[in-house]
Nucleic acid binder design. Structure first.
Lengths: 116, 116
DNA sequence: GCGTTTCGTTACGCTACCGTATCGTTTCCT
DNA sequence: AGGAAACGATACGGTAGCGTAACGAAACGC
């Protein structure tokens, strides 16, 4: 079931959500960090640094840095892969799930207030 | 006519759009910068530094810096207000309008691909 | 076994943003 | 006219991101 939006609704939705996020988010994630976080939580595991870098079209240090920052904030965790100890498996956390749940709620709420 | 989204659709939409934006956007705007840009283009003028700062809940230097950066990129322009020369009026540009139009198209396109 | 490849991380120099405080200009008010 | 207030910009020290390049550890291949 596709979601049909008018141009005004599409940008209006982005406007409302982005503005509220700027207001409320003490974390202030980068666009890249948010993309990484969403990828980790919405796409089936396992997630690796290399895989995320390829999916987003960025270099590996970008992923490492983003995971450092978001790890300090409790949004993700890293574990070495025991089956191939070169790999690092990125894992979800409760706090990260809550963060995205709040974001989803915000998007849904703003969607309801839109007029074409 | 409100837009009804399931939690999965809401985050899925954000995921798709954010990811593609990271891939494609050579500009790499901050979340705050994007919020400012949307405010300027979606809310009726006039826009001032002070007004934008209040609306987004940030300090004035944040707005000044964002306008500096986005001004260099041609996304906005500034003009002194001749009726009160303390004020600066922020104006839209063709390039800025095109940028947001592309963003809107992207949101609409990704909305169509969603399944609940 | 030993070179080669594949991981993720780290180092380096650089740029851009942050918050706080202050500045110069312009307007307002009495 | 002259002081107070409002506006946007700037200065400052600090932090966090960037891309490129190099690194150590682990697995692979012959």
């Amino acid at each position: 079931m596709p979601v049909d939006l008018t141009p005004s609704q599409a940008l209006g939705l982005w406007h409302e959500v982005t503005t509220q996020q700027v207001h409320a988010d003490g974390r202030d994630l980068t666009l890249r960090q948010l993309a990484i976080l969403l990828e980790i939580y919405l796409v089936p595991p396992p997630h690796t640094v290399r895989g995320l870098a390829a999916k987003l079209g960025v270099t590996k240090p970008v992923i490492t840095r983003a995971l450092d920052t978001m790890g300090e904030q409790g949004l993700v965790t890293r574990m070495r892969d025991d089956r191939d100890r070169r790999n690092v498996i990125i894992k979800r956390t409760v706090e990260g799930a809550l963060y995205l749940e709040r974001l989803g709620d915000l998007i849904i709420a703003k969607g309801h207030t839109l007029v074409p």
